[in-house]
């Protein structure tokens, strides 16, 4: 493990920011303040942060419909994100995209995606750019267990292999695609699928930041050094429904309570760093308070922010027309 104290503090801050952001969006959605379809990443923080801690400004990621966590992990501004989710004019995408389309290309974040399987081909393209222009960059596709069954994803595995692209496919397996269990929907195993396409596949405990970080570091180094694509099968849990408003009747009685109790990425991180005496609890509590303050501000500013107006309706369709 090559993580400095600063790295650990950043990892915790990012994970806490995601959790606080998502918990708050959940509450505000329930109050009726947030429009549209909203898919929350709470519970999956260790994956996005564990992967993105290995990336730098040269690197690109493509996300899914469950994209808030990936955005924060790649350095998007939480306040501008919140405004976007509220549909406001100075949101990250001018209020035109919303939760499912948050993007910040200046941060290498190529967008959440409303189309399951939309990201993997795009990431092959980003990796092709990096390879062609010799930027040294790598590209990461986050894919759900459900998205792992999309043709675009499987075609991308092959393309990335035969073009030897610097790609990491991160299959975030939270056990469900909507109501359908990944145990049913995924034929074969993610790892063996990767191997069948000629790339390494690794199974990772997605509740453990350190496990994700280590596996991702190897995969990113593999890609960066020109060895081509690889796949991480990250097993984790989502704390909320598929989208906000989902009653989750397909889950077992007490399932969510139990996983929040026993497999919470933030709790596990706190325990690990305190037991190893890497960080003090007080520092972590301080981060919690700061993050809460930030998200409070983000919500207050978003509520107060002006919406786009008629003059914004026809803009942004083309570069020139």
């Amino acid at each position: 493990m090559q993580l400095s104290r600063e790295d650990l503090l950043k990892a915790y801050r990012d994970m806490r920011t995601i959790r606080e952001f998502e918990d708050r969006v959940h509450d505000e959605f329930a109050k009726g303040g947030i429009p549209g379809f909203v898919h929350l990443y709470a519970g999956e923080e260790a994956s996005g942060v564990g992967v993105c801690m290995n990336l730098d400004d040269r690197d690109k990621i493509a996300s899914t419909h469950r994209g808030h966590g990936h955005c924060i992990a790649k350095g998007c501004d939480p306040k501008a994100m919140m405004k976007e989710i509220y549909g406001k004019r100075d949101g990250l995408c001018g209020g035109k995209g919303g939760s499912m389309h948050i993007a910040d290309l200046s941060r290498g974040m190529m967008g959440a995606n409303g189309i399951v399987g939309g990201g993997p081909p795009l990431v092959c393209g980003a990796a092709l750019t990096a390879k062609t222009l010799k930027t040294g960059g790598v590209a990461v596709a986050f894919v759900g267990d459900g998205g792992s069954n999309q043709g675009t994803t499987l075609e991308s595995y092959n393309l990335a292999r035969v073009w030897n692209l610097p790609v990491v496919f991160v299959v975030e397996d939270n056990g469900y695609a909507e109501t359908t269990a990944s145990a049913w929907s995924v034929g074969g195993s993610q790892k063996k699928r990767a191997e069948a396409f000629g790339m390494p596949g690794t199974e990772v405990d997605g509740h453990d930041f350190f496990a994700v970080y280590d596996a991702a570091r190897q995969a990113v180094e593999f890609a960066r050094s020109g060895d081509g694509p690889s796949l991480l099968h990250v097993k984790l849990d989502r704390h909320y429904g598929h989208f906000e408003g989902d009653a989750m009747t397909y889950r077992a009685e007490g399932e969510v309570e139990k996983l929040r109790q026993d497999r919470d990425a933030l709790k596990i991180f706190r325990t690990k760093v305190s037991e190893a005496k890497l960080l003090e609890t007080g520092q972590l509590d301080e981060i919690d308070a700061e993050v809460k303050e930030l998200i409070d501000q983000a919500v207050a500013e978003s509520e107060a922010a002006p919406p786009p107006g008629e003059e914004d309706l026809l803009t942004d369709v083309y570069v020139s027309y």
Binding site: Y176, E178, T179, T180, W184, S185, T249, Y250, R251, A252
Partner: peptide, 17 residues
């Protein structure tokens, strides 16, 4: 279709959605 019944392979309600 996707989740036309729902809950397939899952521990909770069948025909969930």
């Amino acid at each position: 279709g996707e989740d036309n019944a729902g809950g397939l392979g899952a521990p909770g309600e069948d025909d969930a959605w």
